[in-house]
C-alpha cells in the first residue's frame, strides 16, 4: 500500500491532477463509499432524521455524497483546494442528475464520472446538502461548541501523524484536533474516524472497531468516539467477520507507533541482538500474549533478571 502521507504536505500531494485521478477511479470510489457506509452505520444516527454531520478531510466529496444519500446535512473541511474544487463540481453535477427520475443509480454514477465537460453552466439551482470549507484540521476545528450531531473522517487522519515543517508538531496537532472535535460535538454525538489509533486524552469514550481483523488487505480500523459517557448509544453495530473491539486503553497519543499499527502490520519486535532476551523484549512479548487473552505472569522487578550463576 502506498503511503502518500510520507511524501509531504497533503495539499501538495492532492494537487489538481491527483484530485481528478482520485475522482475518476471507480475502484477508489467504491472503496471510499463502502468505508463511508460503514462509518455511517457506526455513528448510530437516528435513521429518519436529518443530522448535521461534519466530514473532516472531505476530499472530492465522495464521503459527503454518501451522507447526502442518507439525507444528512454535511459540512466538509479539507486542506487541498484542488480536492475542494472537484467536490464542488461533483456536488453541482449530482444535483442536476437528480431530476432524471427514471435512471438507475448505476447509470447516474456512470454519467457523473464519464462526462468531463466543465460545469461552467452551473448558475441554475444547485442544492446539494453539503457545504465546503478550506481548513487544516491540525489547527483545531473552527466551530462553536456543541453544534454537530456527528463527525466522520474517512482516510484522512493519518495525515495528521506527520509533520510538514519544523513548526508542525504532530502530537500538538493531534491534540488540538481531538480536543476541538470533542467540544464541537453535541452531547451523545459520535465520531467515526477511519484509521489511526491515536486518540484522546480529552474525554471521549469509545474505542476501536476492527472490521475483517484476519485479512491484511481488507482490515480496517475505525476509531469510534462518543461524547456519551453514560451508556446510551454505547453499543457497536454488527462487526464484520468476527471483529474485535479494543477499548480506550490504547487511546493515548503515541505518534511513533502509529504507522505500523494502523497498517495492521505486526509491530516489529523490540530486540537488540538475535537471541538476547532483553527486559524490553520480554515485557513486550508478555504484553502481546496478554492481549491475545493468554494467562501471563505479572511483570515484577524480577522479570527478565538473570538467575545467579551456580557454581
Amino acid at each position: 500500500m502506498s503511503r502518500p502521507e510520507l511524501t509531504g504536505h497533503a495539499s501538495n500531494f492532492y494537487n489538481e491532477r491527483e484530485a481528478r485521478k482520485y475522482n475518476s477511479s471507480s475502484r477508489m470510489i467504491n472503496v471510499q463509499r463502502e468505508i463511508t457506509l460503514r462509518a455511517i452505520e457506526l455513528l448510530l444516527l437516528p435513521p429518519d432524521e436529518a443530522s448535521l454531520v461534519l466530514d473532516i478531510g472531505c476530499g472530492s466529496g465522495l464521503s459527503g455524497e454518501v451522507l447526502e444519500e442518507h439525507g444528512h446535512v454535511w459540512v466538509g473541511c479539507d486542506v487541498s483546494r484542488d480536492m475542494l474544487q472537484v467536490a464542488h463540481e461533483r456536488m453541482e453535477k449530482s444535483y442536476k442528475m437528480k431530476g432524471d427520475d427514471d435512471k438507475t443509480e448505476a447509470e447516474i454514477a456512470r454519467m457523473k464520472y464519464d462526462d468531463d465537460d466543465d460545469s461552467d453552466d452551473d448558475d441554475n439551482n444547485v442544492c446539494s446538502t453539503g457545504d465546503l470549507m478550506h481548513h487544516d484540521m491540525g489547527t483545531g476545528l473552527p466551530f462553536r461548541p456543541a453544534t454537530f450531531d456527528a463527525c466522520v473522517s474517512i482516510s484522512a487522519l493519518q495525515w495528521l501523524c506527520y509533520s510538514n515543517s519544523s513548526a508542525q508538531i504532530p502530537k500538538r496537532r493531534l491534540i488540538r484536533f481531538f480536543s476541538s472535535l470533542y467540544s464541537i460535538l453535541k452531547k451523545s454525538a459520535r465520531a467515526a474516524v477511519l484509521i489511526s489509533e491515536c486518540a484522546t486524552a480529552v474525554g471521549f469514550g469509545g474505542g476501536i472497531v476492527v472490521d475483517y481483523p484476519n485479512s491484511a488487505k481488507a482490515k480496517k480500523h475505525y476509531l469510534v468516539l462518543s461524547c456519551d459517557r453514560v451508556g446510551g448509544r454505547g453499543q457497536v453495530p454488527g462487526m464484520t467477520a468476527a471483529g474485535a473491539v479494543a477499548d480506550q486503553k490504547q487511546s493515548q497519543v503515541q505518534v511513533g507507533k502509529q504507522r505500523q499499527e494502523k497498517d495492521g502490520r505486526k509491530a516489529r519486535p523490540i530486540r537488540k541482538k538475535k537471541g538476547v532476551k532483553t527486559k524490553e523484549w520480554i515485557v513486550h512479548k508478555k504484553e502481546t500474549q496478554r492481549k491475545k487473552g493468554k494467562e501471563v505472569r505479572p511483570d515484577t522487578k524480577y522479570t527478565a533478571r538473570r538467575r545467579p550463576r551456580k557454581f
Binding site: C77, V79, L84, H88, L132, M133, H134, H135, D136, T139, G140, P142, S165, A167, Q168, I169, K171, R172, I175, R176, S179
Partner: peptide
C-alpha cells in the same frame, strides 16, 4: 463559495505537551 479558514501555526491555540 468556500471560506478559507486556514491558520498559521503561530496563530493556533497553544497545546502543552
Amino acid at each position: 463559495g468556500v471560506p478559507n479558514m486556514m491558520l498559521e501555526e503561530d496563530e493556533c491555540e497553544r497545546v502543552r505537551l
